[in-house]
Amino acid sequence: MAGDPAVSTRPGWKLLAGLYPFGAGAAAVNLFFASLIFSWLGWRVLTPYESIAGGLVLGIPATWFFAAHIKRLIINAEKPR
């Protein structure tokens, strides 16, 4: 079924819109904590606002990949046995 052109693994806009707040939030938190870890190496710590802005940007590809994974799981679950 992987070669079936009628079945697309591209996620729909509703799925992307539903998952984006979680993807952007997770990216922001991870970016902030990564900056805390890198502060041990002498780098500066990001402000929460910088982390949120970075999370809004990094959340787009993260959400896309996770939504594509969810779409593949849905397709796999709907296969006739």
Score class of each variant (00 low, 15 high):
Met1Asp: 13
Met1Ser: 01
Asp4Trp: 08
Pro5Ile: 12
Pro5Leu: 11
Ala6Val: 04
Ala6His: 06
Ala6Glu: 12
Ser8Phe: 00
Arg10Leu: 15
Pro11Leu: 05
Pro11Met: 03
Trp13Lys: 06
Trp13Gln: 02
Gly18Cys: 04
Leu19Arg: 04
Leu19Lys: 02
Gly23Glu: 08
Gly23Val: 07
Gly23Tyr: 00
Ala24Phe: 00
Ala24Met: 02
Ala26Arg: 03
Ala27Arg: 02
Ala28Gln: 01
Ala28Tyr: 10
Val29Thr: 13
Asn30Asp: 07
Leu31Pro: 02
Phe32Arg: 11
Phe33Asp: 00
Phe33Pro: 04
Ala34Pro: 03
Ala34Lys: 05
Leu36Lys: 10
Ile37Lys: 00
Ser39Pro: 07
Trp40His: 10
Leu41Lys: 07
Leu41Glu: 10
Gly42Val: 07
Leu46Phe: 03
Ile52Asn: 01
Ile52Tyr: 08
Ile52Asp: 01
Ala53Thr: 01
Gly54Lys: 13
Leu58Gly: 08
Ile60Val: 13
Ile60Lys: 06
Ala62Trp: 09
Thr63Val: 12
Phe66Cys: 07
Ala67Trp: 05
Ala67His: 09
Arg72Asp: 14
Ile74Leu: 06
Ile75Pro: 05
Asn76Arg: 04
Ala77Gln: 02
Pro80Tyr: 14
Pro80Val: 04
Arg81Asp: 08
Arg81Pro: 07
